[in-house]
Design a protein around this nucleic acid. Structure first.
Lengths: 206, 206
DNA sequence: GGGCTAAGTAATCATTCGATTACAACACTC
DNA sequence: GAGTGTTGTAATCGAATGATTACTTAGCCC
């Protein structure tokens, strides 16, 4: 008999709680992004993060608080990306650089979609509060720090929402089969399109 | 003792199945619009429609089929509104008339929001199919029948998605308290804003 | 007016899910 | 190396939910 009869004592070392929290947040972002708030179970998040379900709820308290943390993190990442975009010096316009930065966020899988799910759940008291506040923060940033006019800012947001919608409905699935889908995606993404295709379908060859 | 010991025999007459189906669809549209697909229960829909929960699922088979019917109806109503808008003769541009028609759809409560919830659920096999197909139908309509260029059509769709998002997050709740919210809503809706405010908050005085 | 079809419900079932509890083991301090 | 707090899990619970079954009654046709 071996010294350990316990079933598979973990060979890995333990993890700090901050690190673990961030890991779960990233996993949750992916799952919430594709199934939505109500459609996601804490069990799915736990499985995606490689921890047990009770641990997920203990870290965040409730599923709602977990989703709120996902939303807040997504908004923070978004704002950081925009700040970086307007800080860099380039020949491109500020709006163009921010657009590029926005599309680049697709690499953080589920981030824009989790945001989108939060945005359309304004009827949920707490979620709605975070969504409205976060959205207005972005709008203010576009006007006050990026120097866009009100109309330019609205246009920017509008095309962002269109992109989110196209990604959410997996319009990329029709990219090869439907010329209109291709045209729509080309128009929304321009040179960033290969990134989207790669993110949404890892098997595709460039 | 009264002649009827049965608990409240309905004083109302019975209803044809088509009529009843439409009634349930409308109720479902409202509920799905504010809670999303997974967040809505068949019981909530039944209560909103004034029928029993088992009856709702018997009419549509499953909750998913009910949601698909809601989506299809919403797309049909949308396309009808657009066709009517381009048919009428007016001094306004086609795009302007369609925009007005789109905003008018807010009167059909939950319709645009149910659509939006469907749009961001592309990962769900059946829902995704209907969403992509319906969205592309609209895009083709804008180009082929309304005579918009590809870019104009994308702009139109983008601002539609922004409007849906603003409504979904209940940005109207901040209309009186936040000048940026007000500006954003004014820009997205122009003269149609009173309609939105009335729809989202029936207690408000014009 | 009797039977037949369709509208509609009450009761209930099997799952699923978020949350709680109790317990285990690793790492750190003294 | 004993004690202790933190990381982490197994087991389980109660409520919610979609679906099924069996039953009731209204209208309708002959």
């Amino acid at each position: 008999m071996t010294t350990a009869s316990v079933p598979m004592a973990a060979p890995t070392t333990r993890m700090g709680s901050d690190e673990r929290r961030e890991l779960v947040l990233e996993a949750a972002t992916i799952v919430f992004g594709q199934r939505g708030y109500s459609g996601t179970t804490t069990d799915q998040v736990a499985a995606a993060a490689g921890v047990s379900q009770p641990y997920v709820v203990r870290i965040f308290g409730t599923k709602e608080k977990l989703f709120l943390a996902v939303l807040q993190r997504a908004l923070d990442v978004l704002m950081s990306a925009f700040r970086r975009a307007i800080a860099e010096d380039s020949e491109e316009s500020v709006a163009h650089r921010m657009g590029t930065a926005y599309v680049d966020l697709l690499k953080d899988r589920g981030l824009l979609l989790s945001l989108m799910h939060g945005f359309v759940l304004g009827a949920e008291t707490e979620i709605g509060k975070v969504a409205r506040c976060g959205f207005l923060d972005v709008y203010r940033f576009l006007k006050n720090e990026a120097g866009l006019t009100a109309e330019e800012a609205a246009d920017f947001l509008a095309h962002g929402m269109l992109l989110n919608t196209l990604v959410g409905m997996r319009m990329t699935d029709e990219y090869d089969t439907d010329p209109d889908a291709r045209e729509l995606l080309d128009g929304s993404l321009q040179h960033k399109l290969p990134l989207l295709l790669e993110v949404t379908d890892p098997t595709r060859k460039a």
